[in-house]
Simulated assay, not measured.
Amino acid sequence: MSLPHALEYAGTAVFAVSAVLAAGRKGLDLLGVAVIAVMTATGGGTVRDLLLGRTPFWFTDTGYLVTILVAAAITVLMLRWRHPSERVLQIADALGLALFSISGARIAEAAGLPGLIVVVMATITGTFGGVLRDVLCNDIPLLLRPGTIYGTAVIAGATLYVLLQSWGVERTPAGFAGMALIAGLRLIAIARNIQLPVLTIKEKP
């Protein structure tokens, strides 16, 4: 299995776990949990593939769906013994974010797109599944929560990935560096409660 495929499989599994945790907090039934898991784990990659004129990745390789459902089932079973905190959901989402984003960047890069579009595709791949998850669970998407370092982390990591290659670094170590930066920024922001400045416009009295 190539590295891009390994990244996508790992990303789908981790996003499925985060989706089950989110669905469990909302008290959804097993069908609802499965729907949320599939939408979360495939949403970003599907939008990316459609924009690139590709057949959605999980249409041609049903192993992704199997991975999602197995990861979701294992998580459901584990929840019978232990109920994770909100922090666990955030950590799972951060890992999925890093894996999926760089996977999306590699696919966009293979299509011959310029660096800026590679970063855009990475951001879509990494964040859109989480947006679907939060919308379906009736939450404000993490991507849009004021001050949250989420999409910003993806942009930083994908930009590092592109820049390192332009400086002569090979694709694989550049990819791992990008993933480390994405996950690191997100996890540090969670642990330290670091937020971006928020734009506020005061109304005239």
Score class of each variant (00 low, 15 high):
A19S: 09
F176Q: 00
L113R: 00
L31C: 10
L99Q: 00
G157L: 02
E86T: 14
A122R: 12
I124P: 04
L7Q: 02
L187Y: 06
L163T: 09
A41R: 05
V35L: 12
L185Q: 07
I149E: 09
D134E: 02
L160F: 07
T172F: 05
I201E: 15
G27S: 09
L113W: 08
P56F: 01
G178S: 07
R54P: 08
T46I: 03
I149H: 07
V38S: 07
L21G: 06
L97R: 07
V33A: 04
P141S: 02
A174W: 09
T12C: 10
V131T: 14
Q165W: 06
G96L: 05
I182F: 11
G126M: 04
L113C: 05
I102W: 11
L116T: 14
I194L: 15
G27H: 05
T60Y: 10
L142D: 09
F59N: 12
F15C: 04
F57W: 08
G11C: 02
Q90W: 11
T123P: 14
Y161T: 04
G45F: 03
R25N: 06
Y161A: 06
G168S: 09
T127I: 14
A37M: 02
A111H: 14
F59W: 14
L132H: 02
T75I: 11
V131S: 12
K202W: 13
T159S: 13
L89Q: 13
S103F: 13
T42R: 02
L143H: 10
A180H: 01
R106N: 08
F176G: 00
I188C: 13
A122Y: 11
P141I: 01
Y150S: 01
D139P: 00
P146T: 02
R82W: 15
G151D: 01
G63F: 11
P197I: 12
V198L: 15
S101K: 09
A158G: 09
L144T: 09
G63Y: 07
I102N: 12
V88W: 14
R106A: 09
L79N: 00
P146L: 02
A10W: 03
D134F: 01
V154I: 10
T200Q: 15
A73R: 08
M121W: 13
D134P: 00
A108Q: 03
T123L: 15
V35F: 10
T55F: 10
T172Q: 08
